[in-house]
Design a protein around this nucleic acid. Structure first.
Length: 327
DNA sequence: ACACGTAGAGAACTGGT
DNA sequence: ACCAGCACTCTACGTGT
């Protein structure tokens, strides 16, 4: 008996370790240096491991509450799951127990039982009170299913859920399928979270019969919600790429790269180009001018951009910069 | 080994009908 | 709603230093 209890305990410890690991994998990235943010469990703040930046955006600790309410037993009790956008009512709804017993465990009288039944019925009606709620419930399930088979993280799921909620609020659903809007939301969310998946990747995991429907729906909701799909600032990638490159003077390289990017912006050669490509090219310039001896191949590997693109972009950047203008 | 250039294919978007 | 064209990036080569 005791042995069994111990086994259970170690099993529970193992699973909690595992979930902690999984949680860490979905930790947000630092806005300043792209390092991994870690949560300080005592106050719920997110702190960057690399630069020490403290994020205020998520200052509320939504973790479950593990504390003792009953001093005599000393057992810790869990108050509830963290709120999440992934459950249609954010997990905040009331549930009425099915046992017809009062708090001391006594069976309820016939009259009270009938009353509880009525309460349950109405509670259920309010919980999924209209078509929107039921709709949302189904869509969020779809989003989670697709997200997991595409290997997207929780952050993307949450973002997709937010987008879907906005579609509902703005009444964009009528005339469109739940599947379509859910898939489009996930597609948009994956892009916003910098882990994009192509439309062709989305198609097989969705329950959509036509490829073009995802494309069309995505365009529609992006337009209606004013989703900002503007390309990210190439500067955002500099610190991460440079640190992965392991150059001797990261600051100098970064300085030159930023200068090149600014000159490129002034010359308006950045529009339509991939931000990672521009960042990689700017870093290549920085390495050349600082004699870091990094090849295009080195940079292509850390930036996930082809050598060809680096070549094309870096020549444009040089042309755009007044200092290096071709004679 | 590296830099550079080119061709052909493919993905995402735009605009015309 | 559909299709064609676009500007871009990719892979896979070949060439020159």
């Amino acid at each position: 008996m005791i042995q069994e209890y111990k086994n259970q305990k170690t099993k529970a410890e193992e699973t909690s370790k595992q979930t902690r690991k999984e949680n860490e994998a979905s930790n947000p990235e630092c806005e300043e240096c792209d390092g991994l943010m870690r949560k300080n469990e005592s106050n719920g703040e997110w702190v960057c491991e690399d630069c020490g930046l403290v994020s205020e955006g998520n200052a509320i600790d939504r973790g479950p509450e593990w504390r003792s309410f009953n001093d005599s037993s000393g057992q810790k009790s869990r108050v509830g799951a963290p709120t999440t956008n992934l459950i249609h009512d954010k997990g905040l709804s009331t549930n009425i127990g099915w046992q017809n017993k009062d708090k001391s465990g006594k069976t309820l009288s016939k009259n009270k039982r009938r009353r509880m039944n009525r309460l349950r019925t109405w509670n259920e009606r309010f919980r999924t009170k209209d078509s929107k709620e039921r709709n949302l419930k189904q869509a969020l399930g779809e989003i989670q299913r697709m997200s997991s088979s595409l290997g997207l993280n929780k952050q993307v799921e949450e973002t997709a859920s937010m987008i879907y909620r906005q579609c509902l609020e703005k009444n964009l659903l009528p005339g469109r399928s739940i599947e379509g809007v859910a898939t489009a939301s996930l597609y948009a969310a994956a892009r916003q979270c910098n882990t994009p998946r192509s439309l062709d990747e989305m198609y097989p995991v969705s329950r959509i019969s036509k490829t073009s429907e995802i494309d069309r729906t995505y365009r529609y909701i992006a337009k209606e919600l004013g989703l900002k799909m503007e390309p990210v600032d190439p500067r955002q990638y500099l610190p991460r790429f440079i640190s992965q490159l392991e150059v001797s003077n990261p600051e100098d390289v970064r300085h030159v790269a930023e200068e090149m990017l600014s000159a490129g912006e002034d010359a308006n050669i950045h529009s339509g180009k991939s931000p990672t490509g521009l960042a990689a090219a700017a870093i290549y310039c920085g390495c050349l001018l600082n004699n870091e001896g990094k090849t295009q191949k080195n940079i292509a590997r850390v930036s996930d951009v082809s050598e060809v693109t680096i070549r094309n972009r870096y020549k444009e950047l040089l042309d755009a910069h007044p200092k290096f203008e071709m004679e």
